[in-house]
């Protein structure tokens, strides 16, 4: 047969070239089609981008909270409370040996008197304390570990080491609220993961619905293509690319929206941060994350189209 002979005459590279050209053709044909119905396309892109903005916003929120709890970790201090019968001279010797440890960055000795002054100033029990004969407060060594030994296990080891000194009464890490923040941020991270998965499903459904309508509009075209021998892959291709474009455009618009939100929030956040003497800067999407956003949105667009096509395209059959 003439046709099959011609087919076999085509070289493999020629077949691949034709296949790729066909993809490029459909890619731009789909773009052209989207531009032909600007209103419908815009509506879909808007809805999708709002959903993506929510997801991206949640993601950024978690990222910023993680940054916050991460930066706080570095300022952790270990308070080493000495026994009350330990005197200043003994304390100084101990302080010197602790300071010599490689895990320790800085050390400050808070003497009995200084502790009393601070206690008077902040507690409001000043008068009552004045009535006491002796100073009941212990000497405290405030230890700042070096940053690199800062993971929880390392801190624990360091604290155990301090506790084994005979002069030490107990060791305290004022890390509790940092830990809380960390566990809250872990919880948030998980919540956002769940939420964002739901939003991804929503995007797939929104895209699926758009493609379903598009499929209805182009039903005749699909039927005729099938009648002249189009494969499933061929007829679904333009719709897949439509999903790709709409997803990509939604991703771009979501990026713009997220930028605007971060821009609007950055000043108040920096004000709050400065109140707490924090060096906190609102993080935005990095270059890779921006690419990730666009890739995910385009991919979800393709997926949404594909799901609908998988179920609906085989129902459109010539009869």
């Amino acid at each position: 047969m003439a046709k099959s002979q011609r087919k076999s005459q085509k070289s493999a590279s020629e077949t691949v070239q034709i296949y790729l050209l066909e993809h490029v053709r459909v890619l731009f044909a789909s773009l052209g089609r989207i531009m032909k119905t600007p209103f419908t396309s815009l509506m879909t892109v808007l809805v999708l981008s709002v959903t993506l903005t929510l997801a991206g916003g949640f993601y950024l929120m978690v990222k910023n909270i993680q940054q916050l709890s991460g930066s706080l970790e570095i300022s952790n201090q270990i308070s080493v409370f000495l026994k009350t019968n330990v005197h200043e001279r003994e304390a100084k010797t101990l302080a010197a040996s602790i300071k010599a440890l490689s895990e320790v960055d800085k050390l400050k000795v808070i003497g009995k008197r200084q502790a009393m002054e601070e206690f008077k100033a902040y507690s409001g029990f000043g008068d009552a304390l004045a009535a006491l004969d002796s100073n009941p407060l212990p000497i405290v060594l405030q230890v700042q570990p070096v940053a690199k030994s800062m993971d929880a296990a390392a801190i624990k080891r360091l604290m155990d080491k301090f506790e084994r000194y005979p002069a030490v009464d107990f060791v305290q890490l004022d890390m509790l609220w940092v830990k809380r923040l960390q566990s809250i941020s872990a919880l948030l991270e998980r919540a956002v993961m769940v939420l964002n998965s739901l939003l991804a499903v929503a995007i797939i459904f929104i895209m699926g619905n758009t493609i379903r309508l598009e499929l209805q509009n182009r039903r005749e075209e699909v039927l005729i293509a099938k009648l002249v021998g189009a494969t499933h892959a061929f007829v679904q291709r333009p719709f897949i690319y439509t999903g790709f474009w709409l997803g990509l455009f939604a991703g771009v618009l979501a990026w713009v929206l997220i930028s605007l939100i971060v821009l609007a929030l950055s000043e108040p956040v920096e004000n709050i941060a400065s109140l707490y003497q924090g060096q906190f800067e609102l993080l935005f999407l990095s270059f890779t994350e921006t690419l990730g956003l666009l890739a995910v949105s385009a991919l979800l667009g393709v997926l949404g189209a594909w799901v609908v096509l998988f179920y609906q395209l085989r129902q459109i059959r010539p009869a």
């Binding site: 005749e220 075209e221 039927l223 005729i224 099938k226 009648l227 002249v228 021998g229 494969t231 499933h232």
Partner: peptide
């Protein structure tokens, strides 16, 4: 999946033309 390849060996002509 074979149907398209069989249809490519046919030339179909319809009363209502079925043109795009």
């Amino acid at each position: 999946w074979q149907i398209p390849y069989i249809r490519r060996q046919l030339g179909l002509i319809f009363q209502d033309y079925k043109l795009l």
